[in-house]
Simulated assay, not measured.
Amino acid sequence: MANPHTAGLYRTFVGGLGTLIVLVGLVLVPLPGPGWLIVIIGLFIISSEFHWAQRLLHFVRVNVERWTHWIMAQRLWVRWTIGAATAAFVAVIVWLTLKLTGLPGWVPDLRLFDVIGLR
C-alpha cells in the first residue's frame, strides 16, 4: 500500500482477525468438529501479511502430509487401532462436554442417557 499508516492499520487488522480465528480454533480443538481446520484458516489469514506465519503454515502442511503418508504406510490393523483410539477420545470429549453442560432440551428422553450417566 502507498500510505504507510494505512498499511500498518491493515497489518494490524489482518493480524488481529487471524489471531482471533486461531484462538477460536484452539478452543474448539478438543471438541468434535473442525477445530484444527479453523486454526489453519486463521494461520492462512495471518500468513498473508507475516512471514513467520508463512513458515509456520508450511511446517504444519509438511507435517500433516508426513503423518498422512506414515499412516497410509501402516498395516490395516494399525490404521484401525489409531482410528478406534481417535474415535474413543472424541467420544470421551463429547461425554465430558455433555456431562458438564447438560443435554439440550431437544434431545429425546432415552434410557441410554441414564446408563451412560448423562441424566
Rank of each mutant, 00 (worst) to 15 (best):
I45A: 09
P108F: 04
A7K: 12
V14Y: 00
E65A: 11
A88L: 15
G18R: 00
L110Y: 03
L96S: 11
G25T: 07
Y10R: 13
I38E: 03
G16S: 13
F50S: 04
F44T: 00
I21W: 03
W95M: 04
A88P: 04
V94D: 08
G16H: 08
V60C: 14
T6H: 08
M72K: 09
D114R: 02
V78K: 10
L23P: 02
R111I: 10
L26S: 04
A2F: 00
Q54H: 01
R111L: 15
V78A: 10
G8Y: 01
R75E: 14
D109Y: 01
L26F: 06
E49G: 07
T86Y: 09
G35T: 01
G83H: 10
W106Q: 06
H58K: 10
L110G: 01
L20V: 10
F13Y: 08
L17W: 07
I71K: 12
L37H: 06
M72C: 09
D114M: 03
F50L: 06
R79M: 09
M1C: 11
G18T: 02
A84L: 14
V27M: 14
S47P: 02
F50Q: 06
G105F: 03
I45V: 12
D109Q: 13
F13C: 09
L96K: 09
W106D: 09
L28E: 02
T86H: 07
W70E: 12
E65R: 15
R75A: 10
L9F: 05
V60H: 01
L17Q: 06
F44N: 10
G16K: 08
V115G: 01
V39C: 10
Q74C: 07
P32Y: 02
L17C: 13
R11K: 14
P34R: 00
I93C: 03
V39P: 07
G42M: 02
T68I: 11
W36M: 14
P30F: 07
F44I: 08
A73N: 15
P34V: 08
L76P: 00
S48C: 09
N3W: 03
W52E: 13
R75H: 10
F13K: 06
N63A: 06
T6A: 15
I93N: 14
V27L: 15
V14T: 04
T19H: 03
L110C: 12
L110A: 11
A2L: 12
R79I: 13
R119H: 09
R119N: 03
V24K: 11
G105Q: 12
F50E: 04
W36Y: 09
I41V: 13
P34H: 00
D114P: 05
I46F: 03
S48D: 02
L43M: 13
H58L: 07
V78D: 09
P32W: 05
R75M: 13
L20Q: 02
I38C: 05
L100I: 10
I45K: 05
V107Y: 08
P34S: 13
V90Q: 10
F113T: 01
I46N: 00
L43A: 02
T97A: 14
T68P: 07
V115P: 01
G33R: 07
I38W: 09
T19G: 01
G105C: 04
R61A: 12
R61Y: 07
L118Y: 03
V27G: 01
I93P: 00
